[in-house]
Design a protein around this nucleic acid. Structure first.
Lengths: 201, 201
DNA sequence: CAAGCATATGAACGATGCGTTCACAACGTC
DNA sequence: GACGTTGTGAACGCATCGTTCATATGCTTG
């Protein structure tokens, strides 16, 4: 409810497409980080960006797609997959960086909301997989496979399953927060998987 | 959009609360399983159940809460945690049964949509944890702890982390379907964790 | 058995967002 | 300098929201 939107008045007529697009993404990013995507609508995005609603409808098929664009424009995701040759250290480093972003910035909340929205917005789900999750899965898989090739991970293991048991486990706690996401949790994830939790035969 | 709702005409005045509640839950369950919760609204639920919208607003704080009630009324979740004394076999059995429900019935889709909706509906999120996820985490934890006590799982392991690396991994593939959820996947989950995927030191 | 309380009903309301339409204006190009 | 592309502003009908109100009836108490 209602900070009076900073409605920017403009004349009519065309403005450069790139300029408009930049305004929109900036505005959407701001709205997302400050209020989450529950209250994000075409109407509000248009008002905040000082852009015609018509324009938004022409460029983005759904609120979700708009949010996805705005989110990535805002965070310029830069989670690297380090490769020092030591898979245990690299996994810990990457997962800790990931957790830091997810819990220490509004980015985690927004990402969760994007995934949430994707459950009932096929358009957004497709865009999310195409732009984000697929790529990250590929990068993680490549790093894990290199570890496998030099014998740090058993050769009969399907590395994609490991992605679910590491990052997927983190997402699980983000989306269904019964338990906290801590560095200790991350340490346990890696230790459990690499060393195994069974004892005897 | 728009099967013409089977509007049930009724007289005015009070009907037994239990009867009304039953009608509502039945209707919501039907709507959820047939159309998902994207199109579920107070309006449609009221129309389908042949109940006044006012009544719904009085009993349920949000569409999400209504959906959650309707869902559990419809599926009467009965995923047991077997205990044969063999933790590997029991985990496989439970996870396979879980996966069967999630992929073989509309229940999986609806559950994903509930979790999705909970990301932007704190009321629903709280209800979900209270009614469902917390309880299931507790049950799984107890079974894992028994295995730990008889030495099938190492004693220094935090069993709650295992929940995230087993069921959480499944949820990950359900919510972000880059990779399929199969029995082979389940097998790999259990094998990876119990045996470990590292090789050397 | 009668009185009264609790509760569902139906109808209406203003507000908001949706998704689309339209004529018009200005930018960039040829 | 003309033209086509593209954003602009305004207005629509429609759906849902969340709320209000007087009314009708089942249930319970005395």
């Amino acid at each position: 409810m209602s900070t009076p939107e900073p409605t920017v008045r403009r004349g009519r007529g065309r403005r450069p497409a790139d300029e408009v697009r930049a305004d929109v993404l900036r505005a959407v990013g701001e709205l997302l980080l400050s209020e989450g995507m529950a209250d994000l609508t075409f109407e509000r995005a248009a008002r905040t960006a000082g852009v015609s609603k018509t324009t938004l409808y022409k460029w983005w098929p759904s609120v979700g797609a708009l949010a996805l664009d705005g989110y990535f424009h805002a965070v310029e995701d830069e989670l690297e997959f380090p490769d020092t040759g030591d898979i245990r250290a690299d996994l810990l480093a990457q997962l800790r960086a990931f957790v830091a972003v997810m819990t220490g910035t509004p980015g985690g909340r927004v990402l969760a909301e994007l995934i949430g929205h994707a459950q009932t917005d096929p358009e957004l789900a497709r865009a999310y997989r195409a732009l984000y999750s697929g790529e990250r899965r590929r990068l993680a898989g490549e790093r894990l496979q290199r570890a496998q090739e030099i014998g740090q991970i058993r050769s009969d293991v399907d590395v994609q399953v490991l992605v679910d048991q590491l990052w997927g486990a983190v997402y699980h706690r983000l989306l269904i927060p019964d338990e906290p996401v801590t560095d200790a949790f991350v340490g346990a994830l890696v230790a459990n998987l690499l060393g195994g939790v069974g004892s005897g035969a």
